[in-house]
Amino acid sequence: SEIVVAMYDFQATEAHDLRLERGQEYIILEKNDLHWWRARDKYGSEGYIPSNYVTGKK
């Protein structure tokens, strides 16, 4: 599975969105859409994140 790191904070506005915290790692579950990826955080929460807010883990 692909691990990404959040470059920016993202506040979830929709129920299906996942909040991003800058510097935290997330697991990508689905990339069915170019701009919104389904991800899981370290607490096990899942939701959609803006793909341009994250970068591949170095």
Score class of each variant (00 low, 15 high):
residue 1 S to F: 15
residue 1 S to D: 13
residue 2 E to G: 08
residue 2 E to P: 08
residue 2 E to D: 11
residue 2 E to K: 08
residue 3 I to Y: 09
residue 3 I to P: 03
residue 4 V to F: 08
residue 4 V to L: 05
residue 5 V to S: 03
residue 6 A to G: 03
residue 6 A to L: 03
residue 7 M to Q: 07
residue 7 M to W: 06
residue 7 M to F: 06
residue 8 Y to C: 15
residue 8 Y to G: 04
residue 9 D to G: 06
residue 10 F to K: 08
residue 10 F to P: 00
residue 11 Q to P: 13
residue 11 Q to N: 13
residue 12 A to Q: 08
residue 12 A to P: 15
residue 13 T to I: 13
residue 13 T to Y: 10
residue 13 T to Q: 12
residue 13 T to G: 08
residue 14 E to C: 15
residue 15 A to W: 12
residue 16 H to W: 14
residue 16 H to Y: 11
residue 16 H to F: 11
residue 18 L to P: 00
residue 18 L to I: 06
residue 18 L to A: 01
residue 18 L to C: 07
residue 20 L to V: 04
residue 20 L to P: 01
residue 20 L to G: 01
residue 23 G to K: 04
residue 23 G to D: 06
residue 24 Q to P: 00
residue 24 Q to T: 04
residue 25 E to H: 08
residue 25 E to P: 07
residue 26 Y to D: 00
residue 27 I to D: 03
residue 28 I to W: 01
residue 29 L to A: 01
residue 29 L to E: 00
residue 30 E to M: 10
residue 30 E to H: 08
residue 31 K to I: 05
residue 32 N to P: 14
residue 33 D to F: 09
residue 33 D to G: 11
residue 33 D to Q: 08
residue 34 L to S: 14
residue 34 L to Y: 10
residue 35 H to G: 12
residue 36 W to S: 07
residue 37 W to K: 00
residue 37 W to C: 05
residue 38 R to H: 08
residue 39 A to Q: 01
residue 40 R to V: 07
residue 41 D to I: 02
residue 41 D to M: 01
residue 41 D to L: 01
residue 42 K to R: 11
residue 42 K to P: 07
residue 42 K to L: 07
residue 42 K to N: 06
residue 43 Y to H: 12
residue 43 Y to L: 07
residue 43 Y to F: 11
residue 44 G to C: 06
residue 44 G to R: 02
residue 44 G to I: 04
residue 46 E to W: 03
residue 47 G to S: 01
residue 47 G to Q: 02
residue 47 G to R: 02
residue 48 Y to V: 06
residue 48 Y to H: 06
residue 48 Y to G: 02
residue 48 Y to E: 02
residue 48 Y to W: 12
residue 49 I to S: 01
residue 49 I to A: 00
residue 50 P to S: 02
residue 50 P to E: 04
residue 51 S to G: 06
residue 51 S to F: 06
residue 51 S to T: 08
residue 52 N to I: 09
residue 52 N to H: 13
residue 52 N to G: 11
residue 52 N to S: 14
residue 53 Y to D: 02
residue 53 Y to T: 04
residue 54 V to M: 04
residue 54 V to Y: 02
residue 54 V to T: 05
residue 54 V to K: 02
residue 55 T to V: 13
residue 55 T to G: 06
residue 56 G to S: 15
residue 56 G to C: 11
residue 56 G to P: 15
residue 56 G to D: 15
residue 56 G to E: 15
residue 57 K to M: 11
residue 57 K to I: 14
residue 57 K to G: 09
residue 57 K to Y: 12
residue 58 K to L: 15
residue 58 K to G: 14
residue 58 K to S: 15
residue 58 K to W: 14
